[in-house]
Design a protein around this nucleic acid. Structure first.
Lengths: 246, 246
DNA sequence: CGCTGGCTTGATGCTGTTCAATTACTGTGG
DNA sequence: CCACAGTAATTGAACAGCATCAAGCCAGCG
């Protein structure tokens, strides 16, 4: 089994380079120091390791420090639906907060480090720092909006539109982290992309190739370079006057 | 424009027939009386009327007393994705609670009465009645799970499986309300069902007919009678060992 | 150097969409 | 109350988009 190991070194929000993008967003500097107490450990998850499983008690939420994570649902019949890919500075495990049990599984796409934020302590602190309370609500609300977007994508978009939207979304989030918005390496397989978008692996591959032929992107395996961002944006839905299917 | 009218009469949770299915679930009887103060008005929404719109301030959440409501998302291009159909005893507006702005639009499918629950008062009370606080979390968590189910359905199921799951879900919820689990009237149009399930109106209609031919249901316009519940359940995904598409 | 797993590409067929015509309802005004 | 218009639902035929099946390719790795 893939390992999840606890790391010794103590890194804190107040000295973390991601703190402008992560939990501390919107929290006054003087209070950020108080967050340090929450991050009581960091954990390294090897590629393929499961960070938590649906049904687990929610003892913590997790902030990604480096690497990337996918979250997925699993139904009774064993069918998997990937619900998100998460990058550094993003938090996972939020959806389970309200139910005290995790709703999804979280699996590392590559070797990944996460900060573990105990919920007990966090709730305590949130009740004393209003801006933290607000930030938590913002984050949960963002989660809901994420799933709404995915819903709309699955319900309304054609396969190429879905992939375009997917690539643009990744691009924007990577740009926020200071990486190139146009050139990046996909951390997930074609199969994972396909599952996430409700498509088969072959369809995903074909659309990548079609985009490349149309000079919208360059692609070589997991290496992607977005060439024509405007055209991709148009495809993703910001252009045409609604593609039928009222 | 369709009217939303405020009603005068004062109905309270403590004397409401739906109180075993609605907000008061899990709240000790002595505290239920305190909920009465929250339900400061009831509102009648005519068929087609909009109860709230995405972006509206969240001043209240709404409990359906009679009738039915659909909620839908709308994207920049004007495309609509219906995200749920709600029956008496169910609460809407929960998804906006965290963001202080409604995320969806809520529209009455028929003449509908709702209880208006002011969020300010509610939050106040929730901080004093732990079981209310818990119940609110449970309800929000249920909302998230609902959208997860829809996600899985859109991502993984074939059209007939989606419709079967849809019918069974309705059946169960109607049964909870004391109505027949096998015979009911659809409050929503084929178009609305199609939109919800990511299908066209023609496909929905054809599947209804196909189900009827296979003696799984009887259907006459919006009148539906479920004949073979087990077979429908099997279709909906509880049977087969996962229909491909890993 | 050959093996493995992930990716690409092609041929084919099914599922669901689109377009179009018909029928069934609903509501409105005479 | 009936006739009418407008809307909702059904059905058919042709088509498109995506899945499926089946090879072959490429990169990384023992």
């Amino acid at each position: 089994m893939r390992k999840v190991a606890v790391l010794a070194e103590d890194v804190h929000c107040s000295n973390c380079t991601l703190n402008g993008l992560c939990l501390p967003v919107g929290i006054p500097e003087k209070d950020v120091a108080r967050l340090d107490a929450l991050v009581n450990q960091r954990v390294r998850a090897e590629k393929g390791a499961t960070l938590f499983r649906a049904g687990d008690d929610v003892r913590a939420i997790y902030a990604i420090r480096s690497g990337s994570i996918k979250t997925q649902l699993e139904d009774a019949g064993g069918h998997v639906q990937i619900t998100g890919f998460f990058l550094p500075g993003e938090l996972i495990g939020m959806d389970g907060l309200l139910s005290y049990a995790q709703l999804s599984h979280a699996i590392a796409l590559e070797d990944t480090e996460v900060c573990v934020i105990g919920v007990e302590d966090m709730n305590d602190l949130a009740s004393r720092i209003p801006s933290l309370h607000q930030q938590l609500q913002r984050l949960m609300s963002r989660e809901i909006q994420r799933s709404h977007k995915l819903l709309m994508s699955l319900g309304a978009l054609r396969s190429d539109q879905r992939l375009a939207a997917f690539l643009l979304n990744l691009s924007q989030r990577l740009a926020l982290l200071g990486y190139s918005a146009t050139r990046f390496v996909l951390r997930m397989s074609r199969e994972e992309i396909g599952n996430y978008l409700g498509l088969t692996i072959e369809t995903v591959s074909r659309i990548f190739s079609r985009f490349a032929r149309a000079n919208l992107i360059q692609v070589n395996q997991r290496d992607v370079c977005l060439i024509d961002l405007p055209a991709l944006g148009q495809l993703a839905g910001l252009g045409c006057p609604a593609p039928a299917r009222v």
